[in-house]
Computed example of a mutant assay.
Amino acid sequence: MKPAFLINRESHTVKKNGSVLAHVPQDLVTFTAYIDDFSRLESVLKQAAAARCDSVFIEGGDGTIHGVLSALMHVQNVFNPLPKIILLPGGMTNLVAKQVGIHKPTPAKVKAVIEGRGRLLRHRLPMLEVDTGQVYYGFLFSTGALPNGTRYCLEYIHTKGIEGSRAVLATVYQILVGRTGLRQKILTPSPFSLRTDDHNFAGEHLISLASTLPYPLSGFHVFWGGKPECNKLRLTYARSDAKAIIRHVIGLMRKEKPPKAIRKLSQDGFISLECQRAIIHHEGPIVLDGEFLANTNGTITLSITDPLEFTGVK
């Protein structure tokens, strides 16, 4: 393996505890770059390709992973084939790295991956391609209440030092059982239309989210029907007239959903589906992997890329 190490020293855990990759013996590393300017990522990846790197280790949070993999998709033609991706959680939430990265990374685990030893876990996973007129790549796209909740989490939960799945649960708790004014602000209906090959909706919605990850929201199983690892775009939305919201959100914490529960979700305005492509019109904030994208009142096209190969270690 000829690895490239990309390290964001400003990511939360890296800044707090130091970089794991920085302590890997340098004779094992082909190329190292510290990410201090995201606008240079494409140039950095071209340098890694010129050094004939066949794998890219990314140490940082969800925003770092989103930035590096987006840049990789934009310059993928300089790699042949695409490099293997190895993720080290270095942020506060670490949504992607927890599912397909190195669990509790150490220099010894990284060394084992480079040398092809140990209990390696390989995943082939596509990314979302989000076309708003400008093309973005990521793993979790959302509109409505989730962007509103993300902003609340950043301003009021993360600032208290609450991280990861605890931050997600704390945010959901405050929205559902906290102040009525907060709940009304987060769950404000907004215009939304959706078209796939076999599903259409136009009206107002409370929330939508789409992902290629098996479990994109810590602690909640937000897709039902189909298989968790299906190499398809999975999408769930709630209409503005959705009923029994608190009961259904609590129900999403259960992994298995019996047919009766799935029918009740649909009857109460919660729809989940799989597709290869979805066309959305939405007015309001949109978020991809925790990063706010420029608002658009035009068409948003969601599709999926060819699968990338991720290597993880338990």
Rank of each mutant, 00 (worst) to 15 (best):
M1F: 10
K2T: 10
P3K: 01
A4L: 03
L6V: 09
I7K: 02
S11L: 04
H12R: 13
V14M: 08
V14S: 05
K16E: 11
Q26M: 12
V29W: 06
F31L: 10
F31A: 09
F31K: 08
Y34G: 10
I35V: 12
D36C: 13
F38L: 14
R40S: 14
L41K: 04
V44E: 10
Q47Y: 10
Q47S: 14
E59T: 09
E59W: 03
E59F: 05
G63A: 08
G67K: 11
L69H: 02
A71Q: 03
M73K: 15
V75D: 07
N77D: 15
P81E: 07
L82T: 08
L82E: 00
P83C: 05
I85T: 00
I86Y: 04
L87H: 07
P89G: 06
G90M: 02
G91P: 03
N94L: 01
N94S: 08
A97H: 06
A97D: 06
H103S: 13
V110Y: 03
A112H: 10
V113D: 04
I114A: 03
I114G: 04
I114R: 02
E115W: 04
R117I: 06
L120Y: 06
L121Q: 12
L125R: 09
V130Y: 04
Y137K: 04
F139C: 06
L140S: 09
A145I: 08
L146Y: 00
Y152R: 02
C153Q: 05
E155S: 04
E155I: 02
E155T: 01
T159D: 06
T159H: 05
K160Y: 03
I162Q: 06
S165R: 13
R166G: 04
R166P: 01
A167H: 00
V168A: 00
L169M: 14
A170E: 09
T171Q: 01
Y173D: 00
Y173I: 05
Q174T: 02
I175F: 00
L176A: 05
R179A: 03
G181H: 04
R183S: 08
Q184K: 15
L187D: 03
S190E: 08
P191C: 00
L194W: 03
R195A: 14
T196Q: 07
D197Q: 13
D198H: 13
F201A: 10
A202E: 14
G203D: 06
E204M: 11
E204V: 08
H205Y: 12
L206T: 06
L206Y: 00
I207F: 01
I207W: 01
I207Y: 00
L209H: 09
L209F: 11
A210D: 01
P214T: 07
Y215A: 11
P216Q: 06
L217M: 12
F220Y: 15
V222C: 01
W224R: 14
G226R: 10
K227W: 10
A238R: 04
R239G: 11
A242V: 08
K243C: 09
I246A: 14
I250R: 14
G251H: 07
M253S: 15
K255Y: 13
P258T: 11
P259D: 03
K260V: 13
A261E: 14
A261D: 14
K264V: 11
L265V: 10
S266M: 13
F270L: 12
S272C: 09
Q276Y: 12
Q276V: 11
A278S: 06
A278K: 03
H282Q: 08
E283M: 10
D289T: 09
E291P: 07
N297V: 11
N297E: 12
N297S: 15
T305L: 07
D306N: 14
D306E: 15
T311Q: 09
G312T: 00
G312K: 06
